[in-house]
């Protein structure tokens, strides 16, 4: 059965274009242009036999704050949420990632970027209830969180406890962006939420140990102003 997407975007033209493009890709699409309408659609769809699989939410809606809608959705459903933001330096975007959105995309974007981000977000469907990822393998790097091992080209890599914790946090959400705040809270504790320098230092150390060229990483990517992403 086709995956069902709720697309909330207030611009009619863009909504239509995206809707058509997603249908071509085999998705079933319900489109909405306002918070009020989206809330009604959501309620109806989630109680139907064919509930939603993904929410694509634009932040600039005419009748309300996309953030309030996101919190409402998060409080009730484990539905993956992809945020669409109009600006790179949109603080709101980071706040919504912290509030439970799964990933984000900045306008303007191409359809292939949207599809790629949707696929990753869908793969993490139900991360809230289903166990998170504990094994990772990519480009000669092999990480087994259960066995507590990291291999680079078959050779064991020694990581400090903090380096391992940081890497493990990214592995659990592989492919998705993890915000600075989420990493600081989960690795160093809530009291260290503002100590961004810890992140810079330990990401540098991790890259030095795991990347071929730490300046141009291919696995541990930086999302400036937002967080980090482990490539899937």
């Amino acid at each position: 059965m086709a995956l069902k997407v709720l697309l909330v975007e207030d611009d009619r033209e863009l909504r239509q274009t995206l809707r058509d493009a997603l249908i071509v890709e085999g998705y079933e699409v319900v489109a909405s242009g306002s918070v009020a309408d989206a809330s009604a659609v959501l309620k109806h769809a989630m109680s139907s036999e064919n509930p939603l699989d993904l929410l694509v939410l634009d932040l600039g809606l005419p009748d309300g704050d996309g953030g309030d809608f996101l919190r409402l959705v998060r409080a009730q459903y484990a539905l993956p949420i992809l945020i669409v933001s109009a600006r790179h330096d949109d603080v709101n975007k980071v706040n919504l990632l912290d509030a439970g959105a799964d990933d984000y995309l900045v306008k303007p974007f191409s359809i292939s970027e949207l599809l790629a981000r949707m696929r990753v977000t869908l793969r993490h469907r139900g991360t809230v209830v289903v166990a998170a990822q504990t094994y990772y393998q990519c480009a000669g790097l092999e990480i087994d969180l259960a066995k507590h091992t990291v291999l680079k080209a078959g050779q064991p890599v020694h990581l400090t406890p903090t380096e391992f914790k940081l890497l493990a946090r990214l592995v659990r959400q592989v492919g998705q962006v993890v915000t600075h705040r989420q990493l600081l809270v989960d690795v160093w504790g809530a009291e260290n939420v503002d100590q961004t320098q810890y992140l810079r230092l330990y990401m540098g150390q991790l890259r030095a140990k795991l990347e071929v060229n730490p300046t141009e990483p291919t696995l541990l990517l930086t999302e400036p102003g937002v967080g980090y992403r482990l490539v899937e």
Binding site: L221, T222, P224
Partner: peptide, 20 residues
């Protein structure tokens, strides 16, 4: 302007991945 502690290596890395 919102300033934070940043690594220039990271910033350049992100710029270079786009530039390449």
């Amino acid at each position: 302007v919102k300033k934070d502690w940043e690594s220039l290596q990271e910033i350049l890395g992100s710029v270079l991945s786009k530039a390449r």
